[in-house]
Design a protein around this nucleic acid. Structure first.
Length: 895
RNA sequence: GGUUCCGUAGCUCAGUUGGUUUAGAGCACCUGCCUUACAAGCAGGGGGUCCUAGGUUCGAAUCCUAGUGGGACCACCA
C-alpha cells in the first residue's frame, strides 16, 4: 500500500546515491555531442548554504539537467573559493578563541591552521548542495587555492606584470585598521549615521610671500580677519593638515588669499589655497586639506603640490608625526582633541550631521582612507572588449536591464587594487632586493636566476630576496574560474578547455556583476581571446515576505536544510522557483514551499491512482463511436495539450523564464492531467482499465515526469522507476526531454467546448445548491448535434448527468444556459427558477448586443478598414458573426 | 547630484513588433463539498481608474512628453 502522502526523505537519499554510484553527472569531452557547461559561482569555502545559494543553484541545476536530457554533454563544475578576507577573519577568530594571536605566529603556522580549518569546514557547503539534488560533476570539484589554480594565478600575475599591466603605486585605499588590510570599494559597506560636524577656528598668521592679492573692498564683510573657521567631521586629523582651501569666488574670503594660518594646538603654519572644488555653501566654505586621510584632499594635494603628512599607523592609532596624542586610537584622539580645542577656545560649535561612514564588510571596522603602497592592474585597455561584447549582446545579460549598469561601470572603470595585506591567499610573486629593486617571477628560485642573469648580480643568494608579504585579492583568482577549472591558464590547449570553453550560462547575483562577472569577461578575452560564457542569468536577492533582506541578525533566514528535511528538496526547489523572474528579488514565503510540497503530493497521488489500476487485456476500449473511442479522443486531446505546453516551455526556456516554464508544467500536470485527463479516463471504482488506455496513460505520465524532472529530480525519478521503467536499469537523469509533436488545434477547440459545458453544469449545481450526487437530466437544442455526440459519456462522467437528450424546442421551466450558439436545459421541476435564468440571459444578451455594436462601429470606420492589417479585420468580422449567433440563441431563451 | 529600471487584482508577476467587449496567471480571499488517487484535495465565485495628466493613432496597459511614487547603480560636501 502506497502512502497517501508523499514522503520525500528516504526517496531522496536513495536516488542521490544511485546517481552518484552510477556517475550519471560525470562528463568528459565527447566530440559527438554538443557541450553544455556551467561553472558554479564558487561559494566561500567556509560558508554554509543560505537561501540565496538555494535559489542560485536550483536554477543552475534546472538548466544543466534539461541540457543533459536534451542530449548535450552537460557539465556543471562545482568548487569553492578561498575567500581570503572572510576565511582569514574566521581563522583569526578561531585562533583567538584558542588564545593565539595572529601576530604571535609565523605565516607558515598560520597557513597550517587555516588549511586545517578549511579541511574541516571546507566541504560542508558542497555536501549541502547534494541535499538539494545538485547534479554537479563532483569529480571535477575545484578549489581556488589548490596547487593548479594557485599556480594559474601566479602565472597570470607574472604575465600581466611582464606586459606592463601591473604596477606598484601609492594610492589612497580603503584601509581596514582591524583587519589591517586594504579593501576594494565593493568590500566596503556604507552606513548612514548621525555624526558631528565640528567648527574649528584657525588663527590667520600672516601674508605669505607667494600671493599678495587682497580685495580690500570686501574684507570688511568679515569683521574678524584674524581667524577663519573650518568645519570637519574628523578633528583628530588637523595635525595632518597641510593647507586650508577656499573657493576663489568666495567673496567672504578674498581677504585671506595668500595668507597662512596656524593649526590650533599644534601651531604649525599652513597656506591658504584656492580651488573651485570647495563648495561655498557647505559648512563655512573653508576646507581643511588633509591629503593623507581623505581621497579628495589627496587629489587636491597632488594638484597643488602639497606635502603629505600621514599621522595614523596601520592599526588606526596616531603615530609620532601627529606630535600630539601619539599612541592613541583615532576615536580616543578625537574625544581628547575636542576637549582640548574647547578649552583653548578653538571650538566654535558642534552640529549634528547626517553623514555616511564606510565600514568593512568583514570586520565591521570603520574604514580609514589611507595612502599605501599597493599593487594595481591597469584596467582601461583590457576592459574594452569586455565592454563591447556585452553591449553588442555577444554576451547576454538576463534581464537586459543590467546592461546599463554594466556600461556605466565599464565606462568609468578604475585601476584594480589587487593586493591585500593578508596571509590566506596567493602570495604576490614579487621579490625585493635590499635596495628595493623589484623582481617578479613565479618562484624565489626563478627570481634569483633572473637577478643573477639580467641584473648580473651573480653573488646574490636566495636569502637576499624578500617576497612581498601581501596576497592577491580573491577576485584575482576567481576571475580566472571558467578557465582555470579546466586548467586553461597553465595548459591552454588541453582537451577539456578546448571542449568546454566557452561555457554556456552563468547564474549569479547582480551585486557581483562588476567585480566578478565583468572581470571574468575581461579574463576571457585576455587569456582565451574569447567570451567566458554566452548568457549571464542574474538572480535577485532572497527577501522575507516583508521585503527585508535575509540576514542573520534579523533572524529571518530559514535554514535551507531544515526546509529540505521538512518539505523535501523537490518542494523547496519548486517553491523557490514559483515566483522568481530573472533579476527580480524573491519575496520568500514558506507558503511557496508548501505549494511545492502540495504539487509533489498531487503528482504522488496521480501515481497512486495509476499504480492501483488493474489492466484487463481482454477489455476492448469502450467506444462511443465506431471510428474513434472517446478515450481515444481524450488521449489525443491530452497529447495535443501537452505538445502545446512543451512548445510554451521551450519558448520560456529560450528566454530564461524559468518560473514561467515551471508554471506551465505545474498547470499541465495539475489541471490538465490530474484535473481533466485522469478524471475522463479513469475507470469506475474497482473496475479494470483496458490496455490501450493504460499504456497511453503511462506513456503520458512518462513524458510528464521527464518534463518535470529538471525541477523535481527526486520524485520524478521515483515514479519513473516505479511505474514506467519497472526495474530496468535506466535513469530519468539521462532520459530524453520530450520534444514537441503534433498539435491538433481542432481537438483542442472541441474539448474547450466540452469543458465549458461541464463548467456551466457545475456552476448551475453550485448556484442552485444541487448536490453533486444528484444525476441531472441534460437536453440540448442545437443544429449541429454531431458536435456534442462525441462527448456524450464524457459529459455524463464529468458533470454527473443522464444521457443527453436532443430537443428541437426550448424546454419551458427548465434551468438553461448557452454555450457557443446552442441552448442547454436541465429540467428539474423542483429546483428550477426560470426567472433567474431569464435575468441572466437578458444580462448576457445586453452584453453581446453592446459588444456587437462596438465591433460594428469599428468595422464601419473607414479609417480602421483602410489602415488595419487584413487579419485583424478578418478577426473582427468573425467576432461579429459569433456575436450574432450568440444573440440569436439568447433571444431564443428569452422568448 | 548623475545614470538607470520600474509603477497592472490583497501579494508576486505575465502581457511578445500598439489590434478582442468586461486586461491574464499563481498565491491569497469567499461559498459549497470528508465524491473510494489526493482536504497537502474537489467544484464554483468575487476582485483591477493597467500611478496621474497630456499627446501620437482608426485603435494605447503597450509608443512620446511632463509630473508623481519606489528601487538599483555610480559619484558623493569636508
Amino acid at each position: 500500500m502506497i502512502s497517501a502522502k508523499y514522503a520525500p526523505q528516504e526517496i531522496e537519499e536513495k536516488w542521490y546515491k544511485f546517481w552518484l554510484d552510477n556517475k550519471f553527472f560525470a562528463s568528459k569531452p565527447n566530440p559527438d555531442k554538443e557541450p553544455y557547461t556551467i561553472v558554479i559561482p564558487p561559494p566561500n569555502v567556509t560558508g554554509v548554504l543560505h537561501m540565496g545559494h538555494m535559489l542560485n543553484n536550483t536554477i543552475q541545476d534546472v538548466l544543466i539537467r534539461k541540457a543533459r536530457m536534451e542530449g548535450k554533454e552537460a557539465c556543471w563544475v562545482p568548487g569553492t573559493d578561498h575567500a581570503s578576507i572572510a576565511t582569514e577573519a574566521k581563522v583569526v577568530a578561531m585562533l583567538k578563541e584558542k588564545g593565539i594571536e595572529k601576530k604571535d605566529i609565523s605565516r607558515e603556522e598560520f597557513l597550517k591552521y587555516a588549511m586545517e580549518w578549511k579541511d574541516k569546514y571546507g566541504g560542508i557547503i558542497l555536501e549541502q548542495l547534494k541535499k538539494l539534488g545538485a547534479s554537479c560533476d563532483w569529480d571535477r570539484t575545484r578549489f581556488t587555492m589548490e596547487p593548479n589554480l594557485y599556480e594559474a594565478v601566479i602565472d597570470t600575475f607574472v604575465r600581466l606584470y611582464n606586459k606592463g599591466m601591473i604596477y606598484r603605486g601609492v594610492r589612497m585605499v580603503n584601509w581596514d585598521p582591524q583587519g589591517k588590510t586594504a579593501l576594494s570599494d565593493e568590500e566596503v559597506i556604507e552606513k548612514e549615521v548621525m555624526a558631528k560636524l565640528y567648527y574649528i577656528r584657525y588663527k590667520v598668521a600672516g601674508i605669505s610671500n607667494q600671493q599678495t592679492e587682497i580685495s580690500n573692498k570686501t574684507s570688511n564683510l568679515i569683521p574678524d580677519t584674524s581667524s577663519l573657521t573650518i568645519a570637519t567631521t574628523r578633528p583628530e586629523t588637523i595635525m595632518a593638515d597641510v593647507a586650508i582651501c577656499v573657493n576663489p569666488n568666495d567673496e567672504r574670503y578674498f581677504h585671506l588669499h595668500g595668507k597662512t594660518v596656524k593649526i590650533p594646538l599644534l601651531g604649525r603654519e599652513i597656506p591658504i589655497i584656492l580651488d573651485e572644488y570647495v563648495t561655498m555653501d557647505f559648512g563655512t566654505g573653508c576646507l581643511k586639506v588633509t591629503p593623507a586621510h581623505d581621497l579628495n584632499d589627496y587629489e587636491l594635494g597632488i594638484k597643488h603640490k602639497l606635502p603629505v603628512i600621514d599621522i595614523l599607523d596601520d592599526n588606526g592609532f596616531l603615530n609620532e608625526k601627529a606630535v600630539l596624542y601619539v599612541g592613541q586610537d583615532r576615536f580616543a584622539a578625537r574625544r581628547n582633541i575636542i576637549k582640548d580645542l574647547e578649552e583653548a577656545g578653538h571650538l566654535v560649535k558642534m552640529e549634528e550631521y547626517k553623514s555616511v561612514v564606510k565600514t568593512s564588510e568583514r570586520t565591521g571596522a570603520v574604514i580609514e582612507p589611507k595612502l599605501s603602497l599597493q599593487w594595481f592592474m591597469k584596467m582601461e585597455e583590457v576592459s574594452k572588449p569586455a565592454y563591447e561584447n556585452v553591449m553588442n549582446d555577444n554576451i547576454k545579460l538576463v534581464p537586459p536591464k543590467f546592461k546599463n549598469m554594466y556600461a556605466n561601470w565599464m565606462e568609468n572603470v578604475r585601476d584594480w587594487c589587487i593586493s591585500r595585506q593578508l596571509w590566506w591567499g596567493q602570495q604576490i610573486p614579487a621579490f625585493y632586493l635590499q635596495d628595493g629593486t623589484i623582481i617578479v617571477a613565479k618562484t624565489k628560485r626563478e627570481a634569483l636566476r633572473k637577478a643573477q642573469h639580467e641584473l648580473l648580480l651573480f653573488a646574490l643568494t636566495e636569502e637576499d630576496l624578500t617576497q612581498d608579504p601581501d596576497v592577491l585579492d580573491t577576485w584575482f583568482s576567481s576571475w580566472l574560474w571558467p578557465i582555470s577549472v579546466f586548467d586553461g591558464i597553465k595548459d591552454p590547449d588541453n582537451e577539456d578547455i578546448n571542449y568546454y570553453y566557452p561555457t554556456n550560462d552563468l547564474v549569479t547575483a547582480p551585486e557581483i556583476l562588476f567585480f566578478w562577472v565583468a572581470r571574468m569577461i575581461i579574463a576571457g578575452y585576455e587569456w582565451r581571446g574569447e567570451l567566458p560564457f554566452r548568457n549571464v542569468y542574474l538572480t535577485g536577492i532572497v527577501r522575507d515576505k516583508q521585503g527585508r533582506k535575509m540576514s542573520k541578525s534579523l533572524g529571518n533566514t530559514p535554514d535551507p536544510l531544515d526546509l529540505i528535511a521538512q518539505y523535501g528538496a523537490d518542494a523547496v526547489r519548486t517553491g523557490m522557483l514559483f515566483s522568481s523572474p530573472a533579476g527580480n528579488d524573491l519575496m520568500y514565503d514558506e507558503k511557496l514551499v508548501e505549494q511545492g510540497r502540495n504539487f509533489c503530493n498531487k503528482i504522488w497521488n496521480a501515481y497512486r491512482l495509476i499504480e492501483g489500476w488493474t489492466v484487463d487485456t481482454s477489455l476492448a476500449p469502450p467506444s462511443g463511436r465506431s471510428d474513434v473511442s472517446e478515450e481515444g479522443a481524450v488521449i489525443n486531446w491530452f497529447n495535443s495539450k501537452m505538445n502545446q505546453t512543451i512548445l510554451e516551455i521551450q519558448d520560456h526556456f529560450s528566454k530564461f523564464r524559468i518560473s514561467d516554464a515551471l508554471l506551465s508544467i505545474y498547470n499541465l500536470i495539475w489541471d490538465d492531467f490530474c484535473g481533466k485527463y485522469l478524471e475522463m479516463i479513469k475507470p469506475a471504482f474497482e473496475q479494470p482499465i483496458n490496455k490501450a488506455t493504460y499504456d497511453a496513460t503511462v506513456e503520458i505520465f512518462d513524458k510528464l515526469m521527464r518534463l518535470a524532472h529538471p525541477y523535481m529530480p527526486f520524485i520524478t525519478e521515483e515514479i519513473w522507476q516505479e511505474i514506467i521503467k519497472r526495474g530496468e536499469k535506466e535513469t530519468i537523469v539521462r532520459a530524453e526531454f520530450p520534444k514537441v509533436e503534433t498539435i491538433d488545434e481542432k481537438i483542442l477547440a472541441d474539448f474547450e467546448i466540452l469543458f465549458a459545458i461541464v463548467s456551466k453544469i457545475r456552476e448551475t449545481r453550485n448556484t442552485k445548491q444541487i448536490s453533486p450526487k444528484i444525476t441531472l437530466p441534460l437536453a440540448i437544442k442545437t443544429t449541429v448535434p454531431s458536435r456534442y455526440q462525441q462527448f456524450q459519456s464524457l459529459i455524463v462522467k464529468l458533470a454527473n448527468t443522464e444521457k443527453i437528450e436532443y430537443v428541437s424546442e426550448k424546454l419551458e421551466n427548465a434551468l438553461s444556459f448557452v454555450v457557443k450558439a446552442d441552448e442547454f436545459f436541465i429540467n428539474l421541476e423542483s429546483n428550477s427558477n426560470p426567472e433567474e435564468e431569464l435575468v441572466q440571459a437578458k444580462k448576457d444578451l445586453e452584453y453581446y448586443q453592446n459588444f456587437k455594436k462596438s465591433v460594428e462601429s469599428k468595422l464601419a470606420n473607414e479609417r480602421f478598414v483602410a489602415n488595419a492589417k487584413p487579419e485583424i479585420i478578418e478577426k473582427e468580422r468573425q467576432k461579429l458573426a459569433d456575436a450574432d449567433a450568440k444573440i440569436k440563441a439568447l433571444e431564443a431563451v428569452i422568448r
